[in-house]
Amino acid sequence: MIVAQASTDRAFFQWDWVLAHWSELGEQTVEHLFLTGTSVAIGLVISAALAAIALRWSSTFGPIIGVGGVLYSVPSLALFALLVPFTGLTSRTTAIIPLVTYTILILVRNMVAGIRSVPAEVVEAAQGMGLRRRQVFMKVEVPLALPTFFAGLRITTVTIVGLVTVTALLGFGGLGQFILNGFRKSIVFPTEIIVGMVASVLLAMVLDFALLQAQRVTTPWLRRPRS
């Protein structure tokens, strides 16, 4: 039995719809970038502080990662719902706080893992050359930890781009608005759903690529010499 003969008289994908919606796509992309960028930026600051604590007092690492893991396993929609009474329905804060909590686990873990992966001999050598503790940290340990840090940052950023789409259920969502609105019609509109999804995937890939380039620029010693 055929259930929903949705869109029998129109193409599954309409290019002219895309062409007519460039400006909306642009606006929602900017909104998507804003939500992603703000969440990741705040997440970076908090994670850096937590990573510093975990590195200074190594016994705190377990609990910090534990709490991060718990936050990571709470579904985003639940966090949004529970935040509404405190932060309001129309404020972006309601969308951003849950997004920030999802950045912490991976960022903290990779920051700490990056620093800890620096070989002890390298640190000793640096100390032997007369560098002070802070100098060793900033000039030796942090640069050597950058690849691991960037790996975490890339995963986090891409994850957040995906999660921003969920906030469409709260009236935000950036490109997620297209996905939801396409489905939110008594006869679903495939073009809108596909456009929202493809645009979101492209945005994630572009940001991932940009961060990869940023990593290459900041870690020139990793670039293999051409043979």
Partner: peptide, 26 residues
């Protein structure tokens, strides 16, 4: 790795819903 990670789960769930609607499956 690259595409798999970039696909939003929200989007893929709704996209799957769209396809199954078209095919007339629950």
């Amino acid at each position: 790795v690259n595409i798999g990670r970039a696909i939003p789960s929200f989007g893929i769930v709704i996209f799957a819903g769209l396809l199954f609607l078209e095919w007339g499956i629950s």
